[in-house]
Amino acid sequence: MSNGEETSAATIARQAINSLLRNVLNSRVVPILFHRSPGNDNGGDRAIAGLHWQVRAQGFVIQTGVTGNDGRVAMVVRGASSTLELLHNGAVVASYDVRVSTATLDAVGTLIGQKQRLRLLGYQIGHGGPDGNGVDATVNMETERSMLDFQADESLYDDAVVTATMQARLTARAGT
């Protein structure tokens, strides 16, 4: 804006009454699934239905909703990031900052890629690594425990050995 004013609002034109032009408002959506762990053997009862949620961006509530039977939120991210808040009796009980990044996870064949997915799925992988989020290339007790937990939840042979089946399951569960 040439007068130095900042705005985060969308810009829309006033059209002449006979104009055929339109302005597009497009939202980027990040699919997020709320699952409980462990579920039953086939994973069929994992989705958390009936969660009340809202999304905030730049101080405004930009989206509200309730999860359905699939536990899914099609979360809108505006600008650099948005915050997804879970509500209980109207109060915020949990919040997640979501940033859209063109960077993808490391390959599932690598230890870092496996840890990234375990973290995404809510397994405790500790606080090691450069970002303090547990994602690094070392195997410690927390790494082993998270892998055993995942294998138990997925009814896989539990020996903390990352087989091709486990890699495929990690990819499927994390959605990437």
């Binding site: 006033r14 059209q15 104009s19 032009l21 339109r22 302005n23 408002l25 939202s27 099609a74 809108v76």
Partner: peptide, 11 residues
């Protein structure tokens, strides 16, 4: 009068 015409899309 003028007009606003907005097309709403997701992805």
């Amino acid at each position: 009068p003028n007009l606003v015409r907005i097309q709403i899309t997701r992805d």
